[in-house]
Every structure is written in C-alpha cells, then in structure tokens.
C-alpha cells in the first residue's frame, strides 16, 4: 500500500510540474489560438538563469531559500524580456498568416534559443543546487520531501491566482474579450496588442518559476531540457482542454498520475509483457481516448469549433 501511495505522490509532483508549464501554453493558446512551441525553451532559459544566479551567490552564504527567491527574481525579468521579443518579432507579424506559419516560426525560435543557450551555458549538464533543506515527511510509509510539498502547493496557488485574475480583474476581462473576438475588443477600446503582450509576459514569469521548480526537483539543468518538458506539458494542456486554466492543472495532474502509475503497474497488469518502457504509450493512448470521446479535452468546450 505504501508503494501505491508513493506512486500517487510521485504522480502528483510530476503532474504539478507539468501543470506549471502547461499554464503558460494554455494562456497563450486561449488568447491567440497559437501553440507557443517556444514556451518549453523559455522554461529552460528560466532554469539556467536561476542556476547561474545561484552559483554566483553561493559564496555569499545566504540561506538556499533566499538564493532561490533572488534567482527567480532575476530569471523572471529575463524570461519576460525574451517572451516580449519573441512575441514582438516572431509572432505578431504573423497574426494574419495561415495558422501553420506561426507554428513553424515557433519551431525556429525553439531551435534558436536552444543553440543560444548552448553557447552561453555550454553543452554540459549542470547540477542544480538544493533550494530547500532535505526534510522528509512520512505519510503512511511513503516519503514526500519538503520541496515536493512546496511544488504541489505552488502549482495549485499559481493556478488559483491565474484563474482569479482572469475571472475577476479588469485585465482578465480584457483578456477574455480579446480571446473571444479581437476585432470587437479593439472597437470596445481594449488595447488588444498590449493585452496579448501582457499575456506572453505573464506566461514567461510563470516559465521562470517553472524553470526553477523543474531544476530543483530534478537537480539538473541543461540547454536541451525544454523540449521534452514542453511537449509533455503541451500534451497535458490539450488533455485538460487547451485554453482553460483549470483544465491545464487537471491535465497536468492526470498526465503525471498516468505516467507514474503506468510505469509502476503496467508490468503487473499485462502479466510482464509490457514494461515501464511503454509508459509514454499509456499517456498518449489516454490522450487519444479522451479526445475521441471529448474532442475539446476534459474541460474545454468551445475551442473545437474554432479550428
């Protein structure tokens, strides 16, 4: 039983990380209908900037928590500036182009960022420092670290704040209006371009935070880390219903749980024919299954009509 519980915890932590990254995808998609393929790379930049800041500050002897805080305060503006530039120069000129055009542009940005990161941080893998003391909690025989608890809490809090912002604030209202119909929103006096830029920038701040949490949880950062993570997070966002904040969280957690329980129990379920090497298949099969019966994802309703 403790093993099962442990797998649930593993899944929740993994899922929270996916959710943090997926929030960035889903915000941009919600407002522009654009898969911001480069978001995973922005997360990567966030992680590497945080890493560098912490490495510089380690000799100062400050407590790790403070280091982490400072590093994310540095990383967030960097990511925001980056996202601003990406939106301004790679996406905005393409808003009227066919839908695939910004996608290819995004792939180009991805490749560009990866190689820039490789030039700055080198080809190696960097050991990410511990940002919290290694405290374990014991829940019914299963282990959960302080960091993991914080990760889950942070993902939930971020989601809550975002959902509140979109539903309750005037900025959120403007965002929803822009998503609904940009032309009319413009006529209503909403500065559509600024709203879109803001969405990207908020997404980038989240990416910086996600980068820090990914680095801390997996204790490794390198220039190639954004790709797979971005892909998984995007899958999570689609699973939950892309464009929907709660959906991203739900999709992330679900994907994390599927992967964790899949890896843990496929072998027993199939009598040893399939092993943990098929865990990704499980995730994709669930995705296909969900989309066949609910073409808009778990929480999405209207997006399928838009395509």
């Amino acid at each position: 039983m403790d093993i099962f519980l442990q797998q649930i915890i593993n899944g929740l932590v993994l899922g929270s990380i996916y959710a943090l990254v997926a929030l960035g995808y889903t915000m941009v998609y919600g407002i522009l209908g654009l898969i911001n393929f480069a978001h995973g790379e922005v997360v990567m930049i966030g992680a590497l900037v945080s890493y560098s800041v912490m490495m510089v500050l380690v000799p100062s002897g400050l407590p790790p928590v403070l280091l982490a805080l400072i590093s994310v305060l540095v990383a967030a503006p960097v990511c925001m500036a980056l996202a601003w530039a990406i939106e301004r120069y790679a996406y905005r000129p393409l808003r009227h182009a066919p839908k695939l055009t910004p996608l290819i542009s995004a792939i180009g940005v991805s490749i560009l960022l990866q190689n820039l990161a490789m030039m700055i941080w080198g080809r190696g893998y960097h050991a990410f420092p511990d940002i919290l003391p290694a405290i374990h909690f014991d829940i019914g025989g299963a282990q959960i670290t302080l960091l993991q608890t914080v990760t889950i809490g942070l993902a939930a809090a971020t989601m809550g704040i975002l959902a509140w912002m979109i539903q309750r604030t005037s900025l959120g209202q403007a965002m929803r209006a822009t998503a609904e119909n940009p032309a009319i929103a413009e006529l209503m006096g909403i500065p559509v371009n600024r709203i879109i830029t803001l969405t990207f920038i908020i997404g980038a701040a989240l990416a910086a935070l996600a980068g820090l949490m990914v680095g801390a949880n997996y204790s490794v950062a390198h220039y190639y880390m954004g790709f797979m993570l971005g892909l998984k997070a995007f899958t999570a966002a689609v699973l939950g219903g892309i464009g929907n904040i709660t959906g991203a969280m739900l999709g992330g957690l679900l994907l994390g749980l599927i992967e964790s329980l899949g890896a843990g129990y496929i072998e027993d379920l199939t009598g040893g024919i399939l092993g943990s090497h098929y865990q990704d298949i499980f995730a994709f099969l669930v995705l296909i299954g969900v989309l066949v019966f609910r073409p808009g994802g778990l929480m999405g309703e209207r997006v399928s009509e838009r395509a």
Binding site: I3, Q6, Q7, N10, G11, V13, L14, V214, Y218, V220, Y224, M225, F227, M228, L229, E259, S260, L261, G262, A263, G264, G275, S276, H277, Q279, D280
Partner: peptide, 21 residues
C-alpha cells in the same frame, strides 16, 4: 526487477519506487 527509462528522461521516481518494493 527490470525497469526502463529514456535518454531524455528527468523523472525516475516511478520506476525507482517500483524497484524499492
């Protein structure tokens, strides 16, 4: 126990938990 991962993986908790058992 024989478990599998990939050369791009960063999360090993699930298979390690299984091995621990």
């Amino acid at each position: 126990a024989q478990e599998f991962t990939t050369d791009k993986a960063t999360d090993f908790k699930a298979i390690l938990t299984k091995i621990k058992a």
